[in-house]
């Protein structure tokens, strides 16, 4: 494992820790998109089916379980926790994610490495992850007062994706026969989705202003 991959995974882990801490400490999920969290739950369940079929490393298995468990915890809090569920921006979080799920699934049926249930679901998870942050970005746009932690959560997630691109470049240069075109293209699309957010995040940080995204 190279330094970019490890750094990317750590950013992903930190993003989730930031979100868990924010919701737990403030007893509020204001500004957090339940739709994005549910999309991530679908992504992780479909991708990590190989937990049952193959063992890669203790690191790999542990991270997969953490991602699954934390995402379901957040969803549980937002839907069912007595105090937290009241703070959910239900009226603002209106992104119709079936318009993401269906096209991604159809694309995975057509464009995959092997036409088997496991492989199609895995490919579906790759495509869906690329667009899973969209409901969260739309919700941030509608939130006037983005709190620091929610902004940091999205920034850490975006950094994780950017670092994965460096990881792919590094692996492509150092490992023979390392190619995964579908993952690369989806990953680049996913990173592009964040560019606009990065611009405003860094600008607000440099000007010492509160983060807000123009509608």
């Amino acid at each position: 494992m190279n330094i970019f991959r490890l750094a990317g995974d750590m950013m992903h882990l930190f993003s989730i820790i930031v979100l868990l801490l924010k919701i737990n400490a403030t007893r509020s999920c204001r500004g957090v998109s339940l739709k994005t969290q549910e999309l991530y739950a679908i992504v992780f369940v479909c991708r990590y089916l190989d937990l049952f079929t193959s063992f890669i490393s203790l690191y790999n298995t542990t991270m997969k379980l953490i991602f699954l468990l934390s995402t379901f915890t957040i969803i549980y809090w937002m839907r069912f926790h007595k105090v937290i569920r009241v703070t959910y921006d239900r009226e603002q979080d209106t992104f119709r994610y079936q318009f993401l799920i269906l096209p991604c699934f159809l694309l995975a049926l057509v464009l995959n490495n092997e036409f088997s249930a496991m492989e199609v679901l895995w490919t579906f998870s790759i495509y869906l992850e690329a667009v899973a942050i969209l409901p969260q970005l739309v919700l941030l746009q509608r939130t006037n007062n983005i709190d620091n932690l929610t902004g940091n959560y999205v920034f850490l997630l975006g950094s994780y994706r950017a670092l994965y691109i460096l990881n792919w470049i590094y692996r492509f240069m150092t490992e023979p026969n390392y190619r995964q075109y579908l993952v690369w293209i989806s990953g680049i699309v996913q990173t592009i989705v964040y560019i606009d957010f990065f611009y405003y995040y860094i600008r607000s940080w440099r000007n010492n202003e509160k983060l807000s995204l123009p509608a």
Binding site: D9, S54, I56, S57, K64, W122, Y164, E175, N177, Q180
Partner: peptide, 10 residues
């Protein structure tokens, strides 16, 4: 070949 390699990422 390469298939297992792909799946080692998260």
């Amino acid at each position: 070949p390469g298939q297992e390699l792909v799946k080692d990422e998260l």
